[in-house]
Amino acid sequence: MWGFYAHQQINRLAVFTLPVEMIGFYKYHIQYITENAVNPDKRRYAVEGEEPRHFIDIDVYGDSAVYKMPRYWQDAVEKFTEDTLNAYGIVPWHVNLMRYRLTDAMRIGDVKAILVLSADLGHYIADANVPLHTTQNYNGQLTGQHGIHGLWESRLPELFSSEYDFFVGKARYIDNPQLEIWNGVIQAHEALDSVLNFERKLTQDTGSDKKYAFETRGNATVQVYSSDFSKAYHKMLNGMVERQMRKAVAMVGNFWYTCWVDAGQPDLDKLIGFEFSEEELEKRKAELMEWKKKRYESREHESE
């Protein structure tokens, strides 16, 4: 998963790619769609079946598997079994399932479902665009690079995304969403070698006393990658994090728009007045604060 900050930014920025027929509804609910971009992460270790929806360890299926893997769920099940697929991650197939659900919610005008599914779909699409979500070595644990996951997709966006250009143009209709999300996985996986190799080289050239620093997060003091190390790594990646965030923003907008078109282009302006109850909002706020607190205490995200 992207970090807390990046997930929220991706969902928020995707709203501004939408056409006039959609943007009124999504802008009215932009706070919900932004804040709840991390809901799937909060469910990840609490809800059975949630964890594999965030990644695909494509390299376990053999050489060049990212190009050869069955794109459609039933074909993949017939070849590998459902248990195997769930063991190694199902993010591209789950994105397509969520796309169907959001389309149905728009078709029947279920406002609550539209908002929940839009926020969740944005999360899974963003995850599919992270290189380290396409490998068994998701946190560098197999190559002595433990913590690289949090460095790439949390630390770097937090430090440098204010400098990124997020103008990605208007959302477009996707002719084949299942192939589209797989193209995202392919592009992310193709960047994996650079993610790992650049960090390894920089670590060799940097003393451990310069690689890490300590920061206060809430009431806790945590070890983080130093600003100098992060800046050097970011420079070596030559815009990769920005490119992947831009791809995620554009793809989220494209999927939302495609769902709307496939639903028959319903009048979303008629649904603008919907509000979650105070009880629901307070519950979600409490869940969010608890998740943030636990995350800063354990830094579980970096060792996911």
Rank of each mutant, 00 (worst) to 15 (best):
N238S: 14
N238E: 12
G239V: 14
V241M: 03
E242Q: 12
E242C: 09
R243Y: 12
R243N: 10
R243Q: 13
R243C: 10
R243L: 14
Q244L: 13
Q244F: 11
Q244P: 04
Q244D: 06
M245T: 05
M245H: 12
R246W: 10
R246M: 13
K247F: 09
K247W: 09
A248G: 03
V249A: 07
V249E: 04
A250V: 12
A250L: 14
A250D: 15
V252Q: 02
V252W: 03
G253L: 06
G253Q: 04
N254C: 06
N254G: 05
N254W: 11
N254Y: 14
F255S: 01
F255A: 01
Y257C: 01
Y257I: 00
T258V: 10
C259T: 10
C259A: 06
W260Q: 00
V261T: 10
V261D: 05
V261C: 12
V261I: 14
D262G: 03
D262M: 07
D262A: 07
D262S: 08
A263S: 08
A263Q: 05
G264D: 05
G264P: 15
P266F: 02
P266C: 04
D267W: 00
L268V: 01
D269H: 04
D269N: 08
K270H: 02
L271T: 00
L271R: 00
I272R: 02
G273C: 09
G273P: 00
G273T: 10
F274A: 03
F274W: 13
F274M: 08
E275A: 13
E275K: 14
S277H: 11
E278K: 11
E279N: 12
E279K: 12
E279T: 04
E280W: 10
E280Y: 09
E280G: 06
L281D: 04
L281V: 11
L281N: 08
E282S: 13
E282G: 04
E282Q: 11
K283W: 07
R284E: 11
K285E: 03
A286D: 13
A286R: 14
A286S: 15
L288V: 12
L288R: 15
L288P: 09
M289Q: 13
M289I: 09
E290T: 12
E290W: 06
E290G: 07
E290I: 11
W291V: 07
K292R: 14
K292V: 10
K294L: 07
K294S: 07
K294H: 09
R295E: 11
R295M: 08
R295H: 05
S298C: 04
R299Q: 13
E300F: 14
